[in-house]
Structure formats: structure tokens, C-alpha cells
Amino acid sequence: MRTGLILGALLAGLALAAAVLSAFWTPHDIARLAIAEKLLPPSPAHWFGTDHLGRDILSMAMRGAQTSMVVALVAVAIGMGLGVPLGLLAAAHRDRWPDDLVMRGNDLVFAFPSLVIAILITAVFGPSAVNAIIAIGIFNIPVFARVTRGAALPIWTLDYIRAAQVAGKGRALISLQHVLPNIASLLIVQATIQFSLGILAEAGLSYVGLGAQPPTPSWGRMLAEAQTMVTLTPHVAVIPGLCIVLTVLGLNLLGDGLRDALDPRLRVLR
């Protein structure tokens, strides 16, 4: 399982590095169109070839990584920022009205897959990367709320919570001091999972035109543009797809590895 963790960290780290690097430098300028150099196969000048407008695919993919990561990261932040407090609240008031309210609200949001939210927002406000962030972020809220609540409930039955209550601490303080630190590792694991799902969702949204708009490069739109050329020049479609697969795979392996490494039950055994 160690190998999974290392491989995951490696892949995710590579994608992250490419994303960060692309903010300062890419091998070629992606704003420059060169129709004469369109659809070139991979070569020393263009490692991954060029697309239908003659842009360097490696450079595009690097900037695409940036788009994906920013969207997914902000969406996770939205989900955690709202979902975790809601989940803590629900667990602290188990089976009372705050719990019911949070759980029913969760059910309602779960009825709106992020694509559907994106469709609604886009229909009204027009497409943009921000819409993608909002759509994915909203869907992340109930995910984190549910995971937080589920992990917090068993903690609330433990005697150290009763000891804290006997010491006069209220639910909010106990949630903050005792519950949150003890479920933090689980939330970190969930965050990597939602991060990877966010990358997939962003790719899907930009593929159908509900995400990042031209000229912002994104893996999903690169695939959409490549679709008509896929039979003639497969590399145009293969590279962005591989980027998505490897990044998501890396994040998932990282999440799994972290779970094993952080699981207290396993730690005691060692």
C-alpha cells in the first residue's frame, strides 16, 4: 500500500507542479496561433504535438491543469467551509431539529447533481469557470456535511465527550476541541477524493461548454475541440484525456494511501 501512496503523491505532485509552473512559463506561447503548424505529431519541438490551431499541446495541457486544479480546489474549499460546520452542528444535535434541518437540506441538494446545477446557472447567467466552481462546490457541501456527521456521531458517544461536558463545556466548544481534531484525518482523505471528483466534473462541464470559456485552456474543452479530429490525429484527444486520468488516479491513490497511513486502528497494530 506504501507504493500506492508514493505513486499517488508523485502523479498528483506532477500535475500540481505543471499547474503552478504554467502560471509563469510554458514551453510555447498558447495565445499565438500558427495555422501552418496545425495538428503536428509529437516532435522534439512539440513533445505532444500541436492542435488544430497550431498551439503546443503540452503548453495547453499545463495551463489546463491550472484551470482544473483551481476549479476543483475552490470547490473543495466551498464544500469543506460550509459542509464541515454543518456536519458538526448536526452531530452535536443528533436527532434534534438542527440535525433534521441539515440532513433534509442535504437530501435536497443531493437531488441536484452538479451538472444540473451548472445547467441552471449557465442558462441564467451564461457559461464561465466561476459557474463550474459554484456548481461543483454546492454539490460538495452535502458530501462533507454527511461525512463529517457520520464520523462525528460515534465520537459523541465516547466517554471523553461526557468528561468534557462534566467540565462544563458546551457543544460548540466540544465540537471544536474534541470532535474536529479526531475526524480531521478522515476529512483530509475525503478532500482528496472530492478534489479528484472535482477535476472530473470540471472536465465534463467544460467538455459540454458549461465550464471555462475560450481562450482559457482546459482539458475538457481540449477534448471537445479534438473530437472531430480524433480519427485522423488521435494524439490530440489522447493527451488531455491521459492528463485527466493520471491526475485523478494520482489523487485517488494519494487519498487511499493517506487513509491507510492515518487510520488509528492500523497505527495501533504497528
Binding site: L158, D159, R162, A163, H178
Partner: peptide
């Protein structure tokens, strides 16, 4: 008033925050 009372619980393993 609460400070006049304290408690000891059953489970020696669950009585303390492990962190």
C-alpha cells in the same frame, strides 16, 4: 455548582481524547 461534582466513567479507553 457543576464544579462541585466530577465524574469517572466506565471505559478506560474512551475516557480520554487520544490527541
Amino acid at each position: 455548582l457543576r464544579a462541585r461534582m466530577q465524574a469517572v466513567f466506565q471505559d478506560p479507553f474512551g475516557s480520554f481524547d487520544p490527541r
